[in-house]
Design a protein around this nucleic acid. Sequence first.
DNA 1: GAGTGGTCTAGACCACGGT
DNA 2: CCGTGGTCTAGACCACTCA
Lengths: 250, 250
Amino acid sequence: MASQPSSPVLDGMDQRLPLYARLADVLTKRIASGEWSPDAPLPAETTLATDYGVSVGTLRKAMQQLVDDGLLERRQGSGTYVRRARLDKSLFRFFRFASGRTQGAVPDSRILLRETIHAERWPEAARGLGGAEQLIRIERLRLWDNKPFLAEEIALPLSPFAPLMELDITELGPLLYPVYEKVCGQIVASAEEFLTINEADAATARLLNCRRGAPVVSIERHAFAHDRTPLEWRRTRGRGDQFSYRVEIH
Amino acid sequence: MASQPSSPVLDGMDQRLPLYARLADVLTKRIASGEWSPDAPLPAETTLATDYGVSVGTLRKAMQQLVDDGLLERRQGSGTYVRRARLDKSLFRFFRFASGRTQGAVPDSRILLRETIHAERWPEAARGLGGAEQLIRIERLRLWDNKPFLAEEIALPLSPFAPLMELDITELGPLLYPVYEKVCGQIVASAEEFLTINEADAATARLLNCRRGAPVVSIERHAFAHDRTPLEWRRTRGRGDQFSYRVEIH
DNA sequence: GAGTGGTCTAGACCACGGT
DNA sequence: CCGTGGTCTAGACCACTCA
C-alpha cells in the first residue's frame, strides 16, 4: 500500500520534518516511557533501522541527536544505552572549596527537617511543582570538612514520593536522586537552575556561618522526569565568597 | 605513488585519528590563519572534498564538528562561512534590567579613562595577556536608562592595539570588538569568563550606585584570537541584585 | 537556472567489548 | 569469535539562495 518503505509510525507524522527528526521524536518518546532501562542496551542499530524501515545512516543521525541531547550514551562494541543523569554533582560547577581535593568526593549531608506540608503554606515551591496539594519539605545542611557550606530546602509532591516519609532518616544520604529512583521509582532526567544573589538574612547567616548581609548565592532548581513532569523543587544557598564559576564562549 | 586517495597533508598526520578528525584540524588551522573572511563563503563542499581527496560525507562530518565548535556557519543554498563571534552581547546572559525591553538594545558606554601603562603596574592584567610589556588600560561605565550598572576595566597589549590610542574617544562606542577588528585587524574568536562574588569597596559602590559591602558580581574575561593568542583582559563588575543566570542541565 | 548545503540510501570495512 | 558501534565511500534527489 505505502509508497514509501518507512514505517506507518513515521509516515503518520508531519511529513515536512526530515525522516531522522521524526525518528528522533519517536525514540525520545520511547525513552521517556521508561521502555528501556539504563542497564541494558537498546536494540542494535541494524535492528532498529529495519524496524522503522530506514537506512542505518538515518537511524544513526537520529540517535546522534539524542546523544547530543543527553538522552543516550553509545559504547562502541557494547551498545546504546539510556543515560542516567548525574545531577547530584552539578553544584561543584558553582563552588570552590578551601581544602584542595574536590576529586569525586561528595559533601556530607545533615537533615534538619522532614515534614509534609500543605501547598498553600509554601506557594513558591508548589508553583514549581505544578500544583500538587501536599508537599514533602526537607531542609538539610551540606558540610565540607565538618563545616557547613550549603543550605538546602527541597520540595517534593507527596503523591509519588510518600515512601520517603517512611524511610529511616539515615537512609537519606548526600545523594538523593538515586534514592528517588530506588524508593519511589522516579527518575530525574533534566533540570533548570536559576542563580541569583542576595544578602544573608539572620537564619541563613547562622546556617552558613557568615555575617548578616554578606553575599549569598541562591540556586533554584526545577528537576523534571523524562516526560517533563516536575519532580522536585530545590533551593540551595551558599556563601558568596565560596562561589566561583567558569564559562567558555565561542 | 600514494596508496590512498587522500591528500599528503592528511596522510602526514597521526594516522590513528580518523580522517574527518585530521581534516577538521587542518580546516581549523586554515580558519585561524584568517585565510577566509567571514563575509565570503568557503569553497563548496564538493570542491574541498576533491581537494583533500575525501568523500563529501567525510568532509561534511569534519565541517559539522567545526560548526559545533562555533567556528563555522552553514547556510543552505548560500555556502559555508567563518563565524563572527558575538561576544559583546554575552553580558546579557548574566544580568537582568529593571526596564523591560532588553531586545537587541546595547547599553550606553562612558569612557572614564584611557592610558598606556607598564605591565609591572598592573600585574593581574599582564598575566592574563601573556607578558606584554606595555598595556593599554581603559575604564568605562556602562549605562542603562542613564543609570550606571556595569563598571569595566579593560587591558590590551599595546603592540597590536596602539592605533586605539590615536582614535577620538567618541569612536570607542559600546561595542569594542568590531573596533578591534577594523582599527587593529584583531579578531576576537573565543573567550573564557570567571565569575566571583565580592563586596563593593568604596570606589565600586560609588560607580554602581550601591552601598559599600553590597554584593557585587565580578566577571573576569580572557579573550583570544583564533590561534589562542590572548588579546584582551577585562573585568566587569555589576550589582549583585541585578544578577540573574539560568542553566539547563541534562 | 545554476550552485549551494541538506537528506537519504546502500554497502564495505574497521575497532572495540564481551564470551 | 561474534555482535556492537565507528568510519568512509558513492551517488541520487531535495530545498534553498541568489543573480
